[in-house]
Amino acid sequence: MANGQEEKGEVKEMTGAKWEREQALVQKILEKAPYAEGRVRRERRIEFKVPADRIRDFLMTLKENNFELMLQITVVDWLKEGEYELVYQMWSITHRTHAMVKTRIPRELDKARMPTVKDIYPVAETYERDAHDFYGVYFEGNEKMEMPWILDDAEQGLFPHRKDFDMLAYVKKKYKILDRFDENKDNYVI
């Protein structure tokens, strides 16, 4: 009980001082990685923007600064800007802090290439395969890239989570049901 109260007091102090602990952490990391931009989003959440070719250096810096775990690699498809945003979500047990490491790469399939971070965080192998399966980002150096992952043979190579993938037309073609999926929704038979 005493412990819990102490923690609550700590949290209040931190919010009062505009997340001092997180600011110090960001400063410490940015000193070692001057090519990155960083900011504090809120208490226990920090984020960085890194150029795509320096991602390996940056993740090594993070690992030296006690970010022990990689939680996820998220891909966001920005169709108008023609870019994929890759968000490497890192979690530190020591600092009790999430770090979102954001980087941007072009979304054309032949240019969407990233260096793998498998040797820094072994779990990244799985997440990279995931990103490749659904978005077509190719991670160079990950030898399991061509191995089948979640998608079935029929969708392999279609990258169905890209924004410009015509889902409705594909569903019509695949399941051979036409009358239910009228775009005008006049003929909406369920």
Binding site: L151, D152, E155, P160, M167, L168, Y170, V171, K174, Y175, I177, R180, F181, I190
Partner: peptide, 15 residues
């Protein structure tokens, strides 16, 4: 029965 909320999903059986 008919796809339910996955009526326009590429990866769910409709019937």
């Amino acid at each position: 029965l008919n796809g339910g909320i996955y009526w326009d999903a590429y990866n769910a059986i409709k019937h």
